[in-house]
């Protein structure tokens, strides 16, 4: 049942993306409806997977990189529904779906995906809060990167005078710029709270190491937001940096996995 939910949810995200591409090709004005439906179905299935996995492991299902990537996809889609609705960024789903699909696919290819599910004692309230909040923050950073890609695409179309289907459906660059900044700020705030929760988790060496990794992500985003506030560079560069910073954040998940294994 658990695996079926995961697989079905992966298929939903794939079709959500494929449907939007088809709608854009067919010049439909509202390609997001089918896409949003598939995203919703994928999200429900993913929630059910995490629920079942949480019951099986007896704690928040963040015990290996496989679960971490799935939790990250879940957080990304959750934030998409919150932010997409707020900013009416209808096409955000079209860009979020492939990223969620990619994360889920990679997760299922990992060795830890086929590892036996063992019940483990809870790490305690604060460590679990730290891990969960940090991953939701990563979800926000992922969404900021998605908005960044959308900004770069729309900006390029405007510069090159290519008014194709994407141009008509993509939101204005000014709105994307604001959304990107706010989502990134939300992610940064969540990560700050996650770090504070980590500080309250106690001082075993393992938590010190995970805190260091989180700090390694927190610092560049802090600098990025500060630079954005000071405005020394254009929104286009900021969009590119948002994408780059997320790639950096994603790479730290590998380090966290290494820490888990060595532990």
């Amino acid at each position: 049942m658990e695996r079926a939910c995961l697989l079905a949810s992966t298929v939903c995200f794939f079709f959500g993306f494929a449907y939007t591409m088809y709608a854009l090709g067919a010049r439909m004005l509202r390609p997001s409806r089918g896409s949003v439906f598939m995203m919703g179905a994928g999200f429900v299935l993913l929630t059910e997977f995490l629920h079942l996995r949480g019951r099986a492991v007896g704690r928040c299902p963040l015990t290996n990189l496989f679960e971490v990537l799935i939790f990250l996809s879940w957080a990304l889609v959750l934030l998409y529904f919150v932010v997409g609705g707020t900013y009416r960024l209808s096409l955000l789903g079209a860009f979020t779906a492939p990223l969620a699909f990619l994360l889920l696919s990679v997760a299922q290819l990992l060795p830890s995906a086929s590892a036996p599910v063992l019940s483990r004692p809870s790490a305690g309230f604060w460590p679990e809060l730290h891990a969960a909040l940090a991953l939701v923050a990563y979800g926000a950073f992922a969404l900021a990167a998605v908005a960044g890609v959308m900004y770069v695409v729309q900006e390029k179309l405007l510069k090159k005078h290519r008014l194709n289907s994407f141009f008509h459906i993509l939101p204005p660059i000014a709105e994307l710029s604001v959304a990107l900044q706010r989502v990134m700020l939300a992610g940064f705030t969540l990560l700050t709270i996650a770090l504070l929760a980590g500080l309250l988790a106690g001082s075993p060496a393992f938590y010190k190491a995970t805190m260091l990794v989180s700090g390694f992500v927190w610092a560049p985003y802090g600098v990025l937001l500060w630079l954005r506030w000071k405005r020394p560079f254009s929104p286009r560069r900021f969009a590119w940096l948002a994408v780059g910073a997320f790639v950096l954040a994603l790479s730290t998940l590998g380090a966290l996995n290494f820490l888990h294994i060595s532990r």
């Binding site: 010049r27 004005l29 993509l170």
Partner: peptide, 21 residues
């Protein structure tokens, strides 16, 4: 369909582009 898509005069093209920026 795309029947309402795209601007069809210089003025409306300018408006559409401005709104996308």
């Amino acid at each position: 369909t795309g029947i309402t898509r795209g601007a069809v005069s210089v003025g409306s093209v300018a408006v559409e582009l401005a709104e996308k920026i």
